[in-house]
Amino acid sequence: MRAVIRSIAPALPSRGGKFLGEKFAFALAFFVLLAMPGTADDLGDGKRGAALFAKCKGCHQVGKGAENGVGPHLNELFGRRAGSVAGFKYSKAFQRAGSKGLEWHADTLGTFIANPRSLVPGTRMSFRGYDDPIDQADLLAYLRTFSVSPADIPEADPTARGIDHDVDPAILAIAGDPEYGAYLSSECTTCHQAEDSDAGIPSIVLWPEEVFVIAMHAYKDNARAHPVMNMIAGRLGDEEIAALAAYFATLEH
């Protein structure tokens, strides 16, 4: 039914861009949707979703070669049990949610994207949420292209690096002293909770060390703007940032 309406009025007013923009694809979608109402089109506009994913890239990688970062990779997300990506250190909250049977489908993902903490209270995911249903649908359409089957993963799509600031490899290579990091961390835990919860201030535990180091140098170099973090990071030396990264990467709560 919905596909028929769309064929009469192809430019729905509130949408920006078209995932299946070409006429051929549109016609194909028309028939597919007529046959199976309420499937692919409900998932929205994947091209727009790709742009929306920019807000997620700091923590999540998706596509060929995607690896776990601050958050788990998002390949084969649809149908996967929450908290189940091998090698990723999940928060207790996510471990609980997974063991209780939370699986990722359009409905659960929509709820989660709208407000992560409402679905999984205590998650470390520091994201306010996309509360517009169209944004949610578009983002899911994009992520779904990495889930339906391996063939859907575009070969040419660069893996999201998740990090946006250049740091000298020599700095990244510094092995931090976790004991020193433990001392320095007391300055962080005045605001950031040592436990894996996130309310108003992001969680910083169990980040990959490299991501932590890059983020701190971005603040130190004023490439990311936040007055408290610019001030705190501004007086941390390379060794101290490495020490903090080493400490927080291994912190058990």
Binding site: T189, T190, A194, D198, A199, G200, I201
Partner: peptide, 14 residues
């Protein structure tokens, strides 16, 4: 303001 609420939770836990 939201940051201050986060800080309050953080510092009182600390």
């Amino acid at each position: 303001y939201e940051e201050s609420e986060g800080w309050y939770a953080g510092i009182t836990a600390d």
